[in-house]
Design a protein around this nucleic acid. Structure first.
Length: 421
RNA sequence: GGAGAGGUGGGUGAGUGGCUUAAACCAGCGGUUUGCUAAACCGCCGUACGGGGUCAACUUGUACCGAGAGUUCAAAUCUCUCCCUCUCCGCCA
């Protein structure tokens, strides 16, 4: 959420940011409630001050053994007024807080203004897209022939979107996870194994709640959610804590399965590994000094890009436009890997700066080294990387005319084999 | 699941209705001393939200002792409800 004071002092730029994202503008409602709230605070605080003085007076009189009946009677009416104002105030504050959660983060000035994915800006490309002289198989056909991923039986066991990885398919998953984690470690990310269920406070902290509840699987009896991404448990590690400035930046990496309901996703792009309800991902999370967050965004992007380079998979980098980047981000890059059989780009990483938006919800601050008040830190995260689409692109890219798949060299020490099939 | 104990500023931890402005210690910041480091000593030191102001380093007020409600002129302190943590027992990978 944004700082109320910031909204009060910069209503115009907040409104512009909301318009750019195509979100509903409720700034005027916020300002209205804020004004009302401050009026009541002023009135009720005078009354409370009066009450406190009188109470002190009563205490003094009683200690001296004198009668305090007269001033006690006098303060009676004030008590009722205080109660009325307090009730009104708590109602206003409840409404105001709800409203504040509906104000999106405002985009960075560099971000292209736009509405649809077509307005995203391609900032770079890596690798060469080669046309093979044989007919490439789709990855969903390949995995069936090679018997390394079983979609049908996954449907039986759980449902659509819950594939079963087998033998070299399972080993390839494990190899990629270890490869990603080891590479992250060389870039200074400390490995975390977080809980796979989260509570409502954590889901609110990173912005999944209040209104993205539908994307998560729920455990109603215990009021938990299955993690939709490691971002949630890992970013919440420092909720309600004050870090020291010297600790920053803090960089974590975490492998978790991710569970997403993907309600309302139908159509062609759900084929094979393209869109699943359960998938594996290594997530990179950073807690940084507010002045460094845009530099940290660039280095985070480089860290994620490097993984695709080591795997030899062609990809492009998109700078997401205002309308396509989501509620909580100020600036976001997507990495899209080339799937040569499908002849399309697949998103494998989303790299975002949230500035203070999440950290304010979570109340994560740092104490400046030279003393002074704690300030809200900035948080960032990015996938490094999401597995299924990397696997899809890898299988398609490295298939041979005989229907085998060559394992990229970077993975050999993790897989223990060099060919699938 | 059963029984018990407990939740207090960044940390440890006192505080059973009003001279509490939440003690004390640690950590942190500033200073004195010192060839340097350390030690010692002195001072400062919670957060949030308001008001006033030469909008900053000033001043003033209110709230906050797990959360919420209640009793009272007055609540960290008494009452009720809820949440969480720990210990023991049971079950169990």
């Amino acid at each position: 959420m944004l700082d109320l004071k910031f909204i009060r002092e910069n209503p115009q730029s907040v409104k512009e940011g909301i318009a750019k994202k195509g979100e509903v503008d409720r700034v005027d409602e916020v300002l209205n409630l804020d004004t009302k709230r401050r009026e009541i605070i002023q009135r009720v605080e005078v009354l409370k001050g009066r009450r406190n003085t009188v109470s002190a007076e009563v205490g003094k009189l009683k200690r001296e053994g004198k009668d305090a009946g007269a001033i006690i009677a006098e303060i009676d009416g004030v008590k009722n007024q205080i109660k009325q104002y307090d009730d009104e105030l708590s109602q206003i504050e409840t409404d105001l807080n709800k409203l504040l959660l509906t104000i999106p983060n405002i985009p960075h000035p560099d971000v292209p203004v736009g509405k649809t994915p077509e307005d995203n800006k391609e900032v770079s490309r890596w690798g060469e897209i080669v046309e093979n002289d044989f007919e490439m198989k789709q990855h969903w056909d390949l995995v069936q022939k090679l018997d390394i991923i079983d979609f049908e039986r996954g449907v039986k066991v759980t449902g659509a979107g819950f594939p079963i990885y087998k033998e070299k398919g399972a080993k390839l998953q494990r190899a990629l996870i270890n490869f990603f984690l080891d590479e992250a470690a060389t870039r200074g990310y400390k490995e975390i194994q977080p809980p796979l269920m989260i509570n409502t406070a954590s889901a609110t902290g990173t912005g999944q709640l209040p209104d993205k509840e539908d994307l998560m699987y729920t455990i109603p009896r215990d009021e938990f959610f299955m993690v939709p991404t490691a971002e949630v448990p890992v970013t919440n590690i420092f909720r309600d804590e004050i870090l020291s400035e010297q600790q920053l930046p803090i960089k974590f990496c975490a492998y978790t399965p991710c569970f997403r309901r993907e309600a309302g996703s139908y159509g062609k792009d759900v084929r094979g590994l393209n869109r699943l309800h359960q998938f594996d991902k290594v997530e990179l999370v950073k807690f940084v000094h507010p002045e460094k967050s845009y530099d940290e965004l660039e280095s985070l992007r480089e860290d994620a890009e490097r993984l695709l380079q080591l795997l030899g998979l062609p990809y492009r980098v998109l700078l997401m436009c205002t309308g396509d980047m989501g509620f909580t981000q100020t600036k976001k890059y997507d990495l899209e890997v080339w799937a040569p059989a499908q002849k399309r780009w697949l998103e494998v990483s989303s790299i975002s700066n949230f500035e203070s938006f999440q950290a304010r919800r979570m109340n994560i601050r740092y104490k400046p080294t030279g003393g002074g008040k704690p300030e809200i830190i900035h948080t960032l995260n990015g996938s490094g990387l999401a597995l299924p689409r990397v696997v899809a692109a890898l299988l398609e890219q490295y298939q041979t005319p005989e229907g085998k798949v060559i394992v990229p060299k970077a993975l050999h020490k993790y897989t223990g084999f060099e060919v699938i099939g």
